[in-house]
């Protein structure tokens, strides 16, 4: 088993209230992300999803536990991990080109202006924004803004892309189009992605693995669902695949019922190795795959699953 690109070891986040009582948002999280893998995290509001992403990006510090990227501990934000923010976070005083060039010239300060622009243009073309280079964010639609956000994140060629509910502020049609674009771009660039979502269909469409969080406080990883559908899926034929509804039902069951009840039945639960399940397979073979991997945060490489 190869060393995962990202290894999360027992991170927890505690907040101390004004009256001195401490609240644990989540604790004992262990998981890993392999290079080239697309991992989604699903959970209800309040289980600390955004905090987990911020800890991975280095913007926030966990109260305890460690995050390793490529074997080195994360101590702060880094150009290795690009973040796509929910609110797109574009700088409104810069044009599309300006926003992306700002990122490119931060990544490669020694580059000439012409080279920076040429590189930025490549990513503007990649997200289909050719022709809008000189527009300012206020002149763009929500979907186009998020495209700029995606281009900005990809333009620095990060090892890892962190997405915080990137499409939740978009209307359903735009969201669908952008999901397919992300799918295409990730297939083209073999980008490693960690994405937070609360949209089950989005997770099934995009993710190789879906991490399910229980409800907070004291949220945990309940299980890791392996998406057994072929990676060449599209929005149009997704629901025709026999695995689709089994995975979808499993996820919805979890979100509706089990995410609440989980705390009660967690006596024999080993947080270091959350069960890896593949509900998409035929019920006969859909067993817990291998909950007791010796190391690596209980992650089975995808290749072994497929």
């Amino acid at each position: 088993m190869s060393e995962p690109l990202i290894r999360v070891e027992g991170i927890a986040k505690k907040f101390t209230g004004r009256d001195g009582t401490s609240t644990t948002v989540f604790e004992n999280l262990y998981f890993g992300i392999e290079p080239g893998e697309f991992v989604c995290l699903i959970g209800h509001s309040g289980c600390g999803k955004t905090t987990i992403l911020n800890v991975l990006s280095g913007l926030e510090q966990a109260s305890s536990g460690y995050v390793f990227v490529g074997g080195r501990e994360v101590s702060g934000p880094s150009l290795d991990r690009a973040v796509i923010f929910q609110s797109h976070a574009l700088m409104p005083w810069l044009t599309v080109m300006g926003n992306i060039s700002f990122a490119v010239s931060s990544r490669w300060p020694e580059w000439s202006d012409a080279k920076v622009r040429e590189h930025a243009q490549k990513y503007i073309d990649l997200v289909n924004l050719t022709g809008s280079e000189k527009k300012r964010p206020a002149e763009l639609s929500g979907g186009m803004k998020q495209r700029v956000g995606i281009a900005r994140a990809l333009s620095i060629q990060p090892k890892m892309l962190l997405m915080d509910e990137p499409f939740s502020a978009l209307d359903a049609l735009t969201r669908g189009v952008l999901q397919e674009e992300v799918l295409r771009i990730c297939a083209e660039t073999r980008q490693t992605v960690f994405m937070i979502t609360h949209d089950v269909d989005e997770a099934i469409l995009l993710a190789d693995k879906i991490i399910l969080m229980t409800n907070g406080p004291q949220a945990k990883i309940a299980e890791v669902v392996v998406n057994t559908m072929p990676r060449s899926r599209t929005r149009h034929d997704l629901h025709k695949h026999p695995h689709y509804y089994r995975i979808r039902n499993h996820l919805i069951d979890f979100l509706v019922d089990r995410s609440k009840l989980f705390a009660a039945v967690s006596a024999e639960f080993d947080p270091r190795h959350p069960p890896l399940v593949s509900p998409g397979l035929d019920p006969a073979e859909a067993t817990v795959l291998d909950p007791s991997r010796p190391q690596g945060g209980g992650v089975t490489p995808l290749a072994a699953v497929r």
Binding site: S57, L59, G76, P77, S78, L79, R81, V83, S87, A89
Partner: peptide, 21 residues
């Protein structure tokens, strides 16, 4: 806005460049 500062932080922009840009 915090998010703009966060963008600068994730891009490892130095304090002077953050201040001016």
């Amino acid at each position: 806005r915090k998010e703009w500062l966060n963008v600068a932080r994730t891009l490892e922009v130095g304090p002077l460049r953050t201040a001016f840009r």
